[in-house]
Design a protein around this nucleic acid. Structure first.
Lengths: 130, 130
DNA sequence: ATTTTCGTGTTAACTAATCTAACATGTGTT
DNA sequence: AACACATGTTAGATTAGTTAACACGAAAAT
C-alpha cells in the first residue's frame, strides 16, 4: 500500500534530470506548473525527482516532439498522484530495523546494474567529469 | 568497454547519499579522502555519486559497524577504479542518435521498478516531503 | 604513560545550484 | 489584431555543497 518503492523515491536534483532528459530547467518547472509531474521537495524547497518522474518527463518529451501540446499530453499520460484518501487507514507500518533497511537497499542497488553495454554516448554526461 | 552503465552513472548529490546511507557528509568525504570511493564531480566541483558508490558506501558502513577500520576495509573491498590504460584505444564510439539514446534510457528506467512492497520505513525519507 | 593516529564533529567563509517571479518573444489561435 | 502557449532570460534570494581548520575521545604506537 504505502507506495514507496524505488521508482517513486525522490532521488534526483533538477540538474541531473536536465542531463538525463535534455530538457531545460524552465521546461521541467513549467510542466510541473501545469500538473504533468509532481516532484517531491527537500526541506529547503528544492525539487527532488524520482525514476517515475524522469520516466514521465521522457514520455512528455517524446510527445512534445510529436507536436502534441501540454493539454493533450495531460490527457494521454496516466494521471498518477492520488494523494490523500489512503493516508488515513495506513495499517501501522511494520517497523523495520535500520540495519535490515540498509541491507534491503543494498540488495536492490546490487540488482540495479544490469545494463552491460555502453549505453550513453560519449559527451552526453561529459559535463560531470572535470 | 567504455564503462558507462547505469550503475556507474553519476546521479546523486551528497545530500541524497546521506539519506540513503545514513552516513554524515563528513564521513562520506573522509572515505573519499582515504581512497575508498571516487565520486564524480560536477563542473562546479560538487560530488556526484553513482549507484556503485552508494552500494559501496553501504558496504563500508556495514564493515565499520563490525569494528573494522578503514585500512582493513580498503583491503577487503574490491579496488575499483582502474583509470587510464584503456582510455587510449577506445574503438570509436558508435554514434547513437539522441532519440535512440533517450528511448534506451526510458526503457531502462521502466525496468528499474521492480520492488513491490513498501521498502522504506516511514520517516526515513520524511525530510523529503513537506 | 605519553604521544600519535584515527575517525568524526563542528565551524567559518566561499561557491554552486536551485528557487520564484517577472518580463521578453516567436508561433499558433481566435 | 489580440491572445494564449511554450520557452528563454534575467535578477535577487535561499539552499546545498565545498575546503580548510580546529577539537576531541578512543585506539594504537612508542
Amino acid at each position: 500500500m504505502s507506495d514507496m518503492n524505488r521508482r517513486s523515491m525522490p532521488l534526483f536534483s533538477i540538474g541531473i534530470v536536465k542531463s538525463l532528459t535534455a530538457l531545460t530547467a524552465r521546461q521541467i518547472r513549467y510542466y510541473e506548473d501545469n500538473g504533468l509531474i509532481f516532484p517531491a521537495r527537500t526541506e529547503g524547497n528544492q525539487r527532488l525527482f524520482s525514476f517515475n518522474d524522469v520516466d514521465r518527463l521522457l514520455e512528455i518529451k517524446e510527445l512534445i516532439d510529436k507536436g502534441i501540446n501540454l493539454a493533450g499530453i495531460k490527457q494521454m499520460l496516466p494521471t498518477r498522484e492520488k494523494p490523500a484518501a489512503d493516508t488515513l487507514e495506513t495499517p501501522i507500518e511494520p517497523e523495520i530495523s535500520d540495519k535490515a533497511l540498509r541491507q534491503m537497499l543494498r540488495q536492490e542497488l546490487m540488482d540495479t546494474g544490469r545494463l552491460g553495454k555502453a549505453s550513453l554516448r560519449q559527451g552526453e554526461l561529459s559535463r560531470f567529469f572535470h
